[in-house]
Amino acid sequence: MSEDDIFDVGRKTIYWMIAGFVMAMVMIAYVMIIGGYKARLTEVPNEIKSEFIALRFVNNPDCFAYQDPVTKRVFPFSIDVTKFKEEKRIDKCYLTEKEKGYKTFNFKLSLGQYGSLQTNNYFEAPQSQKEYSVLVWDGAKFERDTLFIDVQETLPYLPTEEQKKTAMPAPQPQAKRVFIR
């Protein structure tokens, strides 16, 4: 083997080392692009998911919906003030995992003069807001009111204790309002 041949084999080896690296990068990019496409194909907007979850607050008598004690009829899109004021009732209705619950949906319900309630991993970082026109049962009669539900979707990290105390929102895109009824 002459000196030129040795250089030729050496050049090819270097070429294939670089080509191998480039090919590996191209393959990784290819997998990521196709994976992203597949994820987009099966994606369901968070607004829809949160809508289905939030329905329980106004329709389920085990949450806050008013149920006639005699006929047992449940009034859809209603709020029973007694249930709304009951301590920890929201935890019976929707309780996220203590440790990692910030990675799923959390809600804050605001009902005019009756104040607000929030689920256990809500940290004042809403990404959207829902607005329901509801009937409020105050113990004697129904009144029309509006229930606002702030929806906090997945948070990238758990807010620090300081952030929790001062209710500092984690960095999030600007909240957008979703009107349902």
Partner: peptide
């Protein structure tokens, strides 16, 4: 995905 949302919807039914 659908069945998970259906379960949530059923919970939201009176």
């Amino acid at each position: 995905e659908d069945i998970s949302m259906m379960v949530n919807t059923l919970v939201g039914l009176p």
